[in-house]
């Protein structure tokens, strides 16, 4: 049972190395390369996925920022538009008020002028009338009674507005 037999050992070596070489060529080499290829592909896939996730996160962050900026911009624009509108409204109102004031002024001036004109013509008329009346008075011999009556008539014939 324990005797040494070099022949058996040699057969063991021959068999073992034949199996080793055959197994390596036929099976182990492809199996090991397939395994390591798969491991590599898994590793790169994981790395890719991680990188893509990071990119996506960065993009999302960027987009979020952009949306926030756009929001702010819009708010600002609305505010600007509002203030602009407010301003223009105030301007328009002011202008209208001014114009109205100008118109009123103009109307006042016109009235004043008309009044002056009227007064002027009235005055001329009064002078004419006074002259006429004076002429009549001078031309007629009148008593005190008549005199008074003439003046009264004259005064009543005058338009009321000229009294003052």
């Amino acid at each position: 049972m324990l005797q040494l037999d070099p022949g058996m050992m040699i057969w063991t070596w021959i068999t073992f190395f034949a199996v080793l070489i055959l197994l390596y060529k036929v099976a182990l080499k492809p199996i090991l390369s397939a395994i390591s290829e798969r491991e590599d592909s898994i590793r790169t896939d994981i790395e890719d996925a991680r990188r893509q996730r990071d990119e996506a996160e960065a993009l999302l962050e960027k987009h979020r920022k952009m949306v926030a900026e756009a929001d702010m911009e819009a708010q600002k624009m609305i505010r600007e538009a509002q203030s602009l509108a407010e301003k223009s409204r105030a301007e328009i109102v002011d202008k209208a008020r001014e114009e109205a004031a100008v118109l009123v002024e103009k109307a006042k001036m016109e009235i004043e002028k008309q009044k002056d004109d009227a007064l002027k013509s009235l005055r001329a008329e009064v002078v004419d009338l006074a002259l006429g009346a004076a002429e009549k008075v001078l031309l007629q011999v009148v008593d005190k009674e008549t005199n008074k009556k003439v003046v009264d008539d004259y005064l009543t014939s005058m338009p009321k507005s000229i009294k003052n």
């Binding site: 040494l4 058996m8 040699i10 070596w13 073992f16």
Partner: peptide, 9 residues
């Protein structure tokens, strides 16, 4: 179970 085989290995 042959010692020569295990020795060879």
């Amino acid at each position: 179970s042959n010692i020569n085989v295990t020795a060879g290995l």
